[in-house]
């Protein structure tokens, strides 16, 4: 019983560990199995090695899948773009689908964002499609790609996480980039003074300067917290949803090994959860896109003067 519990938790842990390539300091890890004579860049073989690598490591699987999907997105859309620019007739096939997505994104952007900026709409499109594609990897049965990778490389213990958005590095990387752009456009549109004013003179403002002296620190704390909370909540929302969804898929996958009755129940659950997940992955991609547009609009909005 305890051995089975061990394998179950081992299975879960295996599925939740990234393929990590990083700088491993010298020493012994993984129950003394692999001993590093000297510090060097290598693939981590176990959780301990991953932890020992610290910040100087890259999740090869997250990066690989996200770049693969991003390149796929760029390739598909570029193909349609070339076709659309060359063909003046009625659109067909893929072009219809792409134009539908673009129309949708453009509508959302023009509803929320009322300034002139060439970046926002393409960024919203990239976010929506790319995140949707990354989330979509969640619908693949959890063992397919890791198992296939294990067979191809000949290492059955190879770590491979196929859903990039279940990696907080990926989601936070995107949200921090959005945050950076937000700060950049804030300062570009309002100037440093305007930006500082926005942080210090809201939400409390008094008509007399000697009251303001006391209100400014309070405002600064409140505004800074709400500012910092934006990218973190943006990244963690996506990560949390996808991580939880992936976790449930893994738990369902464990049930497959527990007899005919539970196995068939797992099949039904897998199907039901996948259907529900279609909604979640689309919704999360949409939410990330909309919030990005909203933040960009906030960066451009010059609030009332005080």
């Amino acid at each position: 019983m305890s051995a089975e519990a061990q394998t179950s938790s081992g299975y879960i842990l295996h599925h939740l560990t990234n393929m990590t390539y990083g700088k491993l300091p010298a020493g012994s890890y993984c129950d003394g199995e692999h001993v590093m004579e000297q510090a060097g860049w290598t693939l981590a073989h176990c959780k301990e090695e991953t932890s020992a690598m610290g910040f100087s490591a890259v999740h090869v699987d997250s990066m690989g899948w996200s770049i693969f999907l991003g390149v796929l997105f760029c390739w598909l859309f570029r193909r349609v773009a070339v076709k659309a620019a060359a063909n003046k007739g009625a659109p067909t096939g893929l072009q219809n689908a792409v134009e539908m997505i673009i129309e949708f994104v453009d509508g959302t952007v023009s509803d929320i964002f009322h300034h002139r900026n060439r970046l926002v709409a393409p960024m919203a499109l990239t976010i929506f499609v790319w995140i949707f594609m990354m989330n979509l990897m969640d619908l693949l049965p959890v063992d397919w790609l890791p198992h296939a990778a294990g067979i191809i490389t000949g290492n059955p213990h190879l770590f491979l996480k196929v859903v990039p958005t279940t990696d907080p590095n990926v989601t936070l990387g995107m949200s921090f980039t959005v945050f950076g752009l937000m700060l950049f456009f804030s300062i570009k549109e309002k100037g440093v003074v305007g930006f500082v004013k926005e942080l210090t003179l809201h939400p409390f403002h008094a008509p007399k300067w000697y009251f303001n002296v006391f209100l400014i620190p309070i405002n600064l704390v409140l505004e800074t917290v709400s500012l910092i909370a934006k990218p973190i909540s943006l990244g963690l929302r996506l990560f949390g949803n996808m991580y939880a969804g992936e976790m449930i898929f893994i738990l369902i996958a464990i049930m497959f090994g527990a007899g005919v009755l539970l196995g068939s129940l797992a099949g039904v659950l897998q199907w039901a959860w996948a259907v529900f997940h279609i909604l979640i992955i689309t919704l999360q991609a949409f939410v990330f896109m909309v919030l990005t547009i909203v933040y960009m609009a906030m960066a451009h909005d010059v609030s009332e003067e005080h």
Binding site: N18, T20, G22, T50, S51, M53, G54, F55, S56, A57, V58, H59, S62, M63, S66, I67, G70, T126, W130, D167, P168, N169, V170, L172, G173, M174, F176, T177, G180
Partner: peptide, 13 residues
Amino acid sequence: NINLTLIGQSITF
């Protein structure tokens, strides 16, 4: 773990 993937992802994005 938070690691270089964060920066890599930003650049890719």
